[in-house]
C-alpha cells in the first residue's frame, strides 16, 4: 500500500530552469512568415496557380507526415510546422504550370522518402524540398522545365526570344549581342517581372523575408552572405554576364536565404556555414557556366551536393574551446 504523500509534488529537473521559450515550431513559423512576401508575389504574378500549387504541396506534405508517423508508431509531429514549411518551399521551387498531381507526388516524396524514412526532422541528410525537386526534375523533366510568361510583359529590350524561357536558359543558350547590363533588365529581375519558379522571381520579396529572419535571429548571415558573395565573385571573374544578373536571376536568393540555411542539413558552426555557403555558390556557378552541362540553373543541385558533405564540414570545423 502506498504510504501517505506529505506535501505537494514539485517538478524536479536538472538546471537550467529558465528557457528562452523559442521552440522548433516558432522557428518554422518565422520562416513561413518570412516566405509570405515571396508567396504573395507568386500569387500576384501567377495568380490562382500559385495558390493551388502551394495548397497541394502543403497538404501532400502534411498528410504524408501524419501517415508516416502513424506507421512508425511515433508521436505526431505535424505541429512542429516543418512539414508545412517543406510543402511551401517545394511549391516555391516549382514552375507555375506544373500539373497538380505532380506537385502532390513531389510533396509525398519530400516527406516520405527524404525526411521520415531517415527518422523525421533532425535526421534527414538532404533538404527534403530540394531533394524532391531534384527527383521531380528527373521524373517530370518536361513539365518541370516549361515556363510561361508571367502576367507582365518583359520590358527589357531584345529578350523577346526569352518570353518562354528563364533568363538563365537564355544565358546558357549564349545570347550573343544581348545587352546584359541594361537597367531595365536588372529592374525586372529585382522586382520579379521574369519567368521562373513560383518563388524565385522577385529578389526584393525574398530579401525582405531574409531580413526578417536575420532580425529575428532565426538564421545567421553566414550562409546567405557566403553563397551570394561567391556567386557574385565567380561571375565577376568569369566575366560573362554581369554578376548582379547572376545573383538576381534564378534561385540564388531563394536558395541562399531559405534553402541552404535549413538547419538540419547545413553545418552547425559559423566557420562551417561560411564554407558551406561558398561551396554552394561555387557549384551553382560551375553548373550554370559549364559549357558542357545541360542545366541552366544549379542552385538546387549545389545545395544538395553541399548537404552531402555537411557532415564532413562539421567534422573539420568544430569550435575551439575557450582557453585553448
Amino acid at each position: 500500500m502506498l504510504p501517505k504523500q506529505t506535501g505537494e509534488r514539485y517538478l524536479l529537473s536538472s538546471s537550467p530552469h529558465a528557457h528562452a521559450r523559442r521552440t522548433v515550431s516558432s522557428l518554422m513559423l518565422d520562416v513561413l512568415v518570412a516566405l509570405l512576401p515571396a508567396f504573395c508575389c507568386a500569387v500576384y504574378f501567377f495568380g490562382r496557380r500559385a495558390l493551388f500549387l502551394a495548397g497541394t504541396c502543403i497538404a501532400a506534405c502534411l498528410v504524408t507526415e501524419a501517415l508516416c508517423r502513424l506507421a512508425m508508431k511515433r508521436e505526431n509531429t505535424i505541429g512542429d510546422l516543418s512539414a508545412v514549411l517543406t510543402g511551401l518551399l517545394l511549391a516555391l521551387n516549382l514552375p507555375p504550370d506544373l500539373p497538380l498531381w505532380m506537385a502532390a507526388v513531389g510533396g509525398v516524396f519530400a516527406i516520405g522518402i527524404c525526411k521520415q524514412a531517415f527518422g523525421g526532422l533532425g535526421y534527414n541528410p538532404f533538404n527534403p524540398a530540394l531533394a524532391a525537386r531534384a527527383f521531380m526534375l528527373i521524373s517530370f523533366t518536361g513539365p518541370m522545365t516549361t515556363w510561361t510568361a508571367s502576367a507582365w510583359q518583359i520590358s527589357a529590350g531584345g529578350m523577346d526570344a526569352a518570353t518562354t524561357a528563364t533568363p538563365l536558359a537564355f544565358i546558357k543558350k549564349g545570347a550573343e549581342g544581348f545587352d546584359w547590363s541594361q537597367a531595365a533588365l536588372l529592374k525586372d529581375l529585382f522586382f520579379g517581372n521574369v519567368n521562373g519558379c513560383l518563388g524565385e522571381t522577385s529578389a526584393l520579396a525574398l530579401l525582405i523575408g531574409a531580413c526578417y529572419l536575420l532580425c529575428r535571429r532565426t538564421i545567421t548571415w553566414h550562409i546567405p552572405f557566403a553563397f551570394i558573395g561567391t556567386v557574385f565573385l565567380f561571375a565577376m571573374v568569369e566575366g560573362g554576364v554581369p554578376p548582379l544578373v547572376h545573383v538576381l536571376s534564378g534561385g540564388v536568393v531563394l536558395g541562399a536565404c531559405f534553402m541552404a540555411t535549413d538547419y538540419v542539413t547545413s553545418p552547425i558552426t559559423a566557420k562551417g556555414k561560411l564554407i558551406f555557403g561558398c561551396g554552394c555558390g561555387l557549384v551553382t556557378m560551375l553548373i550554370r557556366t559549364a559549357p558542357t552541362g545541360a542545366y541552366p540553373e544549379g542552385v538546387s543541385f549545389s545545395i544538395l551536393i553541399m548537404n552531402a558533405i555537411t557532415p564532413l564540414i562539421n567534422r573539420y570545423t568544430q569550435p575551439k574551446v575557450f582557453g585553448k
Binding site: M1, L12, S14
Partner: peptide, 22 residues
C-alpha cells in the same frame, strides 16, 4: 503503487541523471 515519488522528474531518461537531480 507501493513506493512514493517525491517529485515529478523532468529530464533525460537515465537513472544516474535522475539520481543526480535532487
Amino acid at each position: 503503487s507501493e513506493a512514493i515519488r517525491v517529485g515529478d522528474y523532468n529530464g533525460i531518461c537515465d537513472c544516474a541523471a535522475a539520481a543526480a537531480t535532487a
